[in-house]
Design a protein around this nucleic acid. Structure first.
Length: 109
DNA sequence: GTTGTGACGACTT
DNA sequence: AAAGTCGCCACAA
């Protein structure tokens, strides 16, 4: 995979505002890689810690925490999101505002 | 080259 | 709601 794609993903993740989340699919689209949500997961996995990416703001469709329950990562992501005011219950994200921008979208309903 | 395994997602049962 | 199926593709074995 090209590093440009990885960097595009990292840049997209950086644009997610505090207190909001974006899905893997949305991040992929933002990075110009529609349909490649899995690549986003990979990009986050290999991202240098030095970048200090807000990886915890990236969630699965639902929107829900992508990690299985009872894993360290799941707990960690929930903790960090709650620390930013995001409500997480049983791995699900509760929507709080009207998600104006398409990027911090949670399914607009 | 093939296979299995994912920080995924949309759709269909 | 839950479980399959299929499309997507990077990576390791």
């Amino acid at each position: 995979m090209s590093t440009e794609a990885l960097e595009a993903i990292w840049r997209a993740v950086r644009t997610i505002p505090r207190g909001q989340v974006a899905t893997y699919g949305a991040v992929a689209r933002l990075a110009g890689l529609p349909g490649r949500a899995r690549l986003v997961g990979h990009a986050l996995k290999v991202a240098p810690a030095k970048l200090r990416l807000p990886w915890y703001r990236v969630v699965g469709s639902g929107p829900r925490i992508a990690f299985p329950k009872n894993t360290r990562q799941h707990a960690e992501q929930s903790r960090r999101l709650r620390a930013e005011g995001v409500t997480v219950t049983e791995g699900r994200i509760k929507r709080r505002n009207a998600g104006n921008l398409d990027e911090m979208l949670w399914k607009p309903r």
